[in-house]
Design a binder for these strands. Structure first.
Lengths: 233, 233
DNA sequence: CCTCTTGTTTCATTAAATGAAATGTGGTTC
DNA sequence: GAACCACATTTCATTTAATGAAACAAGAGG
């Protein structure tokens, strides 16, 4: 999940994956022109890659000639869920946490300059803050989760040291004026950083005091499944 | 979704995608040795591909050195779901159908010698027959859905002509001794083949008469969302 | 009918992928 | 603990496959 170079990628496979990465929830349908502009690659090069990507079902060509992700991704995602045992542990913790605090709880990892939602509670489907599993948000868009992910995966992120020392981050109205959230880092038992668990709710209901309390509850529940909010044992 | 060649693929991108295709629900974790044996590619070649696949999050390297699908697939799957409007239409039809008949209804497409479940009803979660969205089964394993998919995507499949002319297939105890199911083809309004809708239940409850009736109900509901069980208008 | 935009094919040039062999690493056996 | 084995990883001269500029096709719109 190390972010790849940012300017001109080389190597056919890497270029193919770069093309996939251009499809986002904001722009899920792209045509050759767009892909060329966004990637800086030659149209002929892209066309070749698209052909095989489509043949294998990772993209599909729409009637109007544009491209969008294909069903092969569904297949791979299902295997990922099945395999990733820590996703399953996280899911358990999330259920306990959202039961205990009555707010939306979700877990994000960093992947390629974005945060991917790996799990969320499916109880508190608040229409004001509803995020699907697999949904992605650019890290640059900010928010508690993004800042924490940056602090733990990017040595020269803003407030790097401060966030790390506190091992949490509270944001108010950063991405949505009415929301507040607290994010805590999640570490594997052996100290490797996994991602961030975020609790979100209406800002009016949640003062800093409450959010801090929630983060402590989260830490307790994570500990129950062998996960930790601190790198060192 | 055209199945790629069957013997030795060339081209780096295609080789990378081949590697991904080796991960299945039956074998979700593979090591270099396995990938080499299964693909026939040189270990050095594979290792290079794995490195970039891991860097972009499509695979992840486990502590013991083996590989499994990574979170980037979740991201792509989420976009696919959002985009694929026909999946949404199918979902609508599935709800209506399973409401009407009280049995498990699911929709499969062919992808690379396997059938992928794109949608299923989430009402009749019968423990005897429960398939997740994204789940895959090798086409060679048989079953009503597999036979129908083969008949419509593989010109030299067994009983090709017969199945096509009937536009349905009933199976009894083929994959599970106690189950019976009927599969019907699904076509886009313009006549392009999409996949197969399958109704499954306990064999004891479902005689051929009933299954045929179900398939007619399915055809009606599909028609309501602009889909068809026959290629020609 | 002409023009602009986007997609597709071609082909000589060049760079990137290849894979056999050598080396590294961890685990198992005696 | 030495010798062995299985598997992972790196190296590097060779060769193959990717590249992209340009030419061509296909619409869309005026």
């Amino acid at each position: 999940m190390t972010p790849p170079r940012d300017l001109p990628p080389t190597g056919v496979l890497e270029r193919g994956l770069l093309l996939l990465s251009l499809f986002t929830q904001q722009t899920p349908v792209l045509q050759l022109k767009d892909l060329s502009a966004a990637s800086g690659l030659d149209k002929a090069t892209i066309l070749r890659a698209l052909k095989t990507l489509v043949a294998w079902g990772y993209l599909e060509k729409r009637p109007d000639g544009s491209y969008s992700p294909g069903p092969a991704n569904l297949r791979m995602a299902a295997i990922y869920r099945q395999t990733s045992n820590f996703v399953r542990r996280i899911e358990g913790a999330i259920v306990s946490i959202s039961d205990a605090i009555g707010q939306t709880t979700s877990f994000f990892v960093r992947s390629n300059g974005e945060r991917v939602c790996l799990a969320r509670d499916n109880v508190h489907r608040d229409f004001r803050y509803f995020i699907e599993v697999g949904a992605t948000v650019p890290l640059a868009d900010g928010g508690a989760a993004a800042r924490l992910l940056l602090a733990y995966t990017d040595p020269d992120s803003p407030a790097h040291a401060k966030i790390r020392s506190e091992a949490r981050y509270i944001s108010r109205g950063e991405r949505n004026r009415h929301l507040a959230s607290v994010a805590v880092p999640v570490f594997e038992g052996d100290g490797t950083f996994l991602g961030t668990l975020t609790i979100t709710g209406m800002a009016a209901d949640l003062d800093d005091e409450t959010l801090l309390r929630f983060s402590r509850i989260a830490a307790d529940e994570l500990a129950r499944v062998g996960l930790s909010v601190a790198a060192s044992r």
